[in-house]
Computed example of a mutant assay.
Amino acid sequence: MSDLKAQFEQAQKDVRKLTKKPSNDDLLALYSLFKQGSDGDVSGSRPGMLNVVDRAKFDAWAKLKGTKQDAAQKQYIAKVAELLKKLG
């Protein structure tokens, strides 16, 4: 297992240790970086206007289109570390 992959998996565990809920923007960033880091570019069709949450998640992930998975994993790891310092 590569070092980056191990760090990415550890960050997925560490994010569950947050004692306070991150802001919606932080949650969208975590979601989109995780999806880009694990699945690559966004796929599927954009959810309808009435499905506000899934649409926001889709849009956040779509903004990362073209970002390499390794880069997204590094950004996810950094984002988790930042939130752990800020929110404990």
Rank of each mutant, 00 (worst) to 15 (best):
A11S: 08
S45W: 06
Y76C: 11
L50R: 07
L18D: 03
S23K: 14
Q69F: 03
D3G: 01
S2N: 15
Y76P: 11
I77G: 02
A72P: 01
M1N: 10
W61A: 06
E9A: 07
S23I: 12
L87H: 08
T19H: 02
S38H: 12
A71I: 07
D59V: 10
V42C: 02
E9S: 04
S23D: 13
F58W: 15
L50H: 04
A11C: 09
A60Y: 06
S43N: 05
L28Y: 03
D41F: 05
D54F: 08
K21S: 05
A11Y: 08
D59L: 07
R16D: 10
Q75W: 04
D39Q: 13
G48P: 00
S45C: 00
F8Q: 07
D41R: 04
D26P: 01
Q69K: 15
G48K: 09
T67Y: 05
K79E: 15
I77M: 09
K65C: 03
K86G: 04
K86Y: 04
D70V: 02
V42K: 10
K5C: 01
F8G: 06
K74A: 13
A56K: 11
K74W: 02
T67H: 04
S38C: 02
D59R: 05
D26E: 15
K74Q: 15
K35N: 00
G48H: 05
E9I: 08
K17L: 14
A71Y: 02
A29G: 14
T67V: 14
E9V: 03
L18M: 03
L50G: 08
D14I: 06
F58K: 11
T19D: 09
N24C: 00
K13N: 13
K57E: 07
K57P: 12
Y76I: 12
S32E: 07
A11D: 08
L50N: 08
P22G: 10
L18Q: 03
A60R: 06
L64C: 06
L83P: 02
I77S: 03
K65D: 12
V80T: 05
D25N: 10
